[in-house]
Amino acid sequence: MKNELFKGIRITAVCAVIFALIYPVMIWAIAQFSEGNGMGQTITIQSRKHYLNVGQEFTQQGYFHGRPSAVNYNAAGAAGSNKGPSNPDYLKAVEERIQQLLQDNPDMKREDIPADLVTASGSGLDPHISLEAALFQIPRISSHTGIDSNKLHQWISDQVDMQTTGIPAVNVLQLNLEILKEMSHE
């Protein structure tokens, strides 16, 4: 009995060294060769650092908006809404988001609203929107920023990811960085 107890303690200690010390340090060393050195992929524009994979909250009408987030894009407390598909409060919230979108985008019709623009992501940090969700916002952004809608179209088709995402997707931050660059040129 005692015998197995001591063996257990000793073998656990050895395992701790291998799996909780050597292994993570090894992966950390490998990460030093990766883009961003294991600190996350970032892009620095106008001396501001942005995490490419972490969605940000956009509220200004001149920017592309991301998806609704249950935590307002809090990257230190990510979560989904966990609302069930039949929850009346949830359905009401979706309808309100639709109304808000129609109000903000007066040129667009209800049928054009893609579902990802009115549903919250699982992480609350989704950096992407669908292609349709980006196209939907073109008239609004064009009228608020004065950027030609053909140009916005061009940016979207340059950036849309058709192969390596589950649905055709655009990174909202990268689109908005284009807008920022364009606006600061003027």
């Binding site: 809404s81 893609p114 549903t119 992480s123 995402t165």
Partner: peptide
Amino acid sequence: LIGQMNIDQQYGNMEGKEVRF
């Protein structure tokens, strides 16, 4: 129930899901 709201649901049930998947 979302479909009844007449919006575009071609990518399925997106609540709680990520666009990249």
